[in-house]
């Protein structure tokens, strides 16, 4: 599903003394079937941006097109369900949205809201739980008896179960241990290769270079740069000026170049870095 933003602006609490600009003049197209990473420092508008994609926030100016659906400031709150079914959203710390008595019923909640029958929803719940790597016996447990990481998986399963085409992930691995992180990111990467579009909000540059094929940098509610990971991380000074970090491999390569390693390659991930080093020694 192609997502395009045309001159989108968003102002929090418009016409009050607390008025506050969230987004300004966003022009952006996110292609169908892409893995897009949104980066930028805290408060730069990433979360505000993604909430526009399934109309949790409506722009105060401009127009957004998500597949067939157009969202404008005048868009009615009704008829948004099909959109929200197609655009699944995993919020930061999604475990705080669990509420049902059993894991199964919590995962079934989304699909049933979007009109699936109970049977179908049960099937989807089983599948989604399997996808996030939890054994089937968890279906009968109460979500509140699980550990934080397991709750996170259940919450993510609850979003996957509605079978969205586009998946928005707002720092999905925040607060997980390294192993949990890797498992989750691998899951999302697999979903991407199965044909879903992924939009990932993250502070982790390693995730950006390892998984994303498209990067959008936000700064003060505006799009500061949009391009492939290698384009974004090519200009070290620009990255520093925008309070971002370089991925470790880029950082390391720059140090090697400063010490005299002669190459024009700019490896982004560790594997490429090793190849570049072995080829040039």
């Amino acid at each position: 599903m192609e997502i395009s933003f045309k001159q989108v602006g968003f102002i929090y609490q418009q016409n009050t003394p607390m008025e506050n600009i969230g987004l300004e003049d966003i022009n952006l197209t996110i292609n169908d079937h892409s893995f897009t990473a949104l980066i930028g420092h805290t408060g730069s508008g990433k979360s505000t941006f993604v909430q526009h994609i399934n109309a949790l926030l409506k722009p105060t100016s401009g127009e957004i097109k998500v597949g067939e659906k157009t969202i404008t400031p005048e868009t009615n709150n009704k008829d948004l369900k099909p959109l929200r079914q197609q655009v699944g959203m995993v919020f930061q710390f999604p475990e705080s949205q669990l509420f049902e008595e059993t894991v199964e019923r919590d995962i079934m909640f989304g699909p049933m809201n979007f009109g699936m029958s109970e049977e179908e929803a049960k099937q989807m719940a089983k599948k989604a739980l399997h996808q996030v790597g939890l054994p089937e016996e968890y279906l009968e447990k109460s979500p509140f008896d699980l550990s934080g990481g397991q709750m996170r998986r259940v919450a993510i399963a609850g979003v996957l179960a509605s079978n969205p085409k586009t998946l928005i992930l707002d720092e999905p691995t925040a607060g997980l241990d390294p192993e949990g992180r890797l498992e989750m990111m691998t899951l999302f990467n697999n979903l991407y290769h199965e044909g879903k579009s992924i939009i990932l909000v993250t502070h982790n540059m390693e995730d950006v270079v390892n998984y994303a094929d498209d990067v959008v940098v936000f700064n003060h509610g505006k799009v500061a740069k949009h391009g492939t990971p290698s384009e974004i991380f090519a200009d070290e000074q620009w990255i520093k000026d925008n309070n971002l970090e370089l991925p470790r491999s880029v950082e390391f390569m720059n140090q090697l170049k400063a010490k005299g390693l002669k190459t024009t390659d700019n490896p982004l991930v560790i594997k490429e870095l090793i190849e570049t080093i072995t080829n040039n020694i």
Binding site: Q51, K78, K81, R84, M89, N113, G158, V159, S162
Partner: peptide
């Protein structure tokens, strides 16, 4: 904030508040 956040999360899962 938490209320808004949870409301949004459930809305994204298809809940219609106030209809």
């Amino acid at each position: 904030d938490q209320t808004t956040k949870i409301m949004n999360a459930q809305r994204a899962r298809g809940v219609d508040f106030g209809s």
